[in-house]
Amino acid sequence: MISVEDVRKSFGKHEVLRGITNHVEAGEVVVIIGPSGSGKSTLLRCLNMLEPPTAGRVVFKGEDMTAPRVNVSRLREKMGMVFQQFNLFPHRTVFENITLAPLKLKKGTKEEVEALAESLLKRVGLAEKRNAYPSSLSGGQQQRIAIARALAMRPDVMLFDEPTSALDPEMVGEVLKVMEELVEDGMTMVIVTHEMGFAREVGSRILFMDEGVIIEEGTPGDIFERPQHPRTVDFLSKVLR
């Protein structure tokens, strides 16, 4: 689904990604873990070109997103993204947040788009918030709407950038539950998170990153039970107390 080939990203003199190569298969749930500043969010943002890589290629469904003149917007339609800060549109109601992009990009008739939006609202358990403005919702509710908004484009892959890091602890569960249901539906997902329990439970593959490179990757069992690299061992010993 997504191929990352020797991707590098520098901000000024600082090289945040120092050659990342990996491949995400359809149906996989890839969880990226690692210390702050290791480049995991930057890598995720390189996948949909919110951060264009300084070097290397990102190929999505056979199309090179890093090629000059490629229509990045069209490719992004099939890559949903959920942000740490939710980024709902404050001037639009919940329902408009969900329908705005599919209507503007003519992803179906008005009736089809609205029917899908209604069913997504039910799916994230917020049907009654249809006409509310984002500012009246809790963080957990906002993030569930953000997931519904991304799903309304019927994406082939969903990217999650620390989706629970800005939430109060009691709201983390409701967001993770929606994500778990997505996993059960077979959605291809790439998740950057600090929720190790969740990573272990839903991840089909774990990438451990540090200082701009993938140090180690494997099944949750490999990484959490039998980490090979001393830096992985050190990191896990700090986060899994």
Partner: peptide, 13 residues
Amino acid sequence: PIGQTEAGYSLGL
């Protein structure tokens, strides 16, 4: 906030 623009782009707008 820049996140608003990014959210728009991420939806394919």
